[in-house]
Design a protein around this nucleic acid. Structure first.
Ligand SMILES: [Mn+2]
Ligand SMILES: [Mn+2]
Ligand SMILES: [Zn+2]
Ligand SMILES: [Zn+2]
Lengths: 148, 148
DNA sequence: TTGCGGATTAGACTCATTCTAACTGATTAG
DNA sequence: CTAATCAGTTAGAATGAGTCTAATCCGCAA
């Protein structure tokens, strides 16, 4: 089920695109809508399949382009695990990822500021990190059906 | 410069291979030697190129096979950053990786037990993690030429 | 209207990795 | 001694996520 964007989400999208000198297009709205609808870290192909339900003419190339654009404006993060297909995450809060060995599903794990700080503290002087990626791999009790 | 394996490293290799029911072969020794010689997280192609200097008939397929075998017996870890080629690391101590934006080099960052523990503590109940990957991306002052 | 420039599109291409099938060489069985 | 076995090695083909290219599309402004 693909819900429409809330006014707030639409503004978020517009602001980020325009701020970085790019246009709001129906394709970008559709792709962004898909990302926000189920926050389950879909792959490009999953985004493609879902977005096509609502915009059948959409091309795979455009999905790649839209997602790259979103990453560029900081609207979404890429999530990689080993060499699997890249997944996309619209959660902008600092968080880690947990990949369930059994289901393949990726869950968001909240990252408290003090843990983030203790992580930064392990860097020796002279090392200045802009990005930190934390990913867990293991088993999660399937408590529910959602994914974050 | 590719040094030979120390007696200790040789025993380490033999023990791990035999324990998991596999054989010690000249190719595996050569590849392992390369990994220990410069602990700079080489890609498969880099391992291939270096190992060929000492064993010219070695094939790329075998390098892939050897590295997969080593990962299987816990002799080395795979290191991935985004979708770049997989790199290999023989450092078995818990550590994070720092990828230098400018040089592309990957540095080992020691991971103190208390930081590891604080990281594990962010997992909600029911989440059981076997592997944690931590990677930093940023700039490092080029203090020296080695990589860990 | 026409022109411009960003966006979209289909399809070709890349290249790290995986797969396949033939070969090697050490070990074991007769 | 042969021959069968079998893990390991090898070259090359296949795979597939991602990137590139070149042709269109389209909203806007001269
Ligand atoms: Mn869940
Ligand atoms: Mn260094
Ligand atoms: Zn996420
Ligand atoms: Zn390492």
């Amino acid at each position: 089920m693909i819900r429409n964007l809330t006014e707030q989400d639409k503004e978020h999208l517009q602001e980020a695109l325009i701020k970085s000198g790019q246009k709001v297009t129906p394709q970008r709205e559709a792709v962004f809508t898909v990302l926000l609808a189920e926050r389950d870290h879909p792959t490009v192909d999953e985004v493609f399949t879902r977005a096509r339900e609502v915009m059948p003419g959409l091309s795979l190339a455009t999905v790649y382009n839209c997602l790259e654009t979103f990453v560029g404006c900081g609207l979404v993060r890429q999530v990689n695990h080993e060499r699997e297909s890249t997944r996309y995450c619209p959660n902008l809060a600092p968080h880690a990822h947990f990949r369930d060995k059994d289901t393949g599903r990726v869950h968001d794990i909240e990252l408290p500021p003090e843990v983030l700080k203790s992580l930064r503290s392990i860097l020796p002087p002279g090392f200045d990190s802009e990005v930190i990626e934390i990913s867990f791999h293991g088993r999660a009790q399937a408590k529910d059906t959602h994914s974050n």
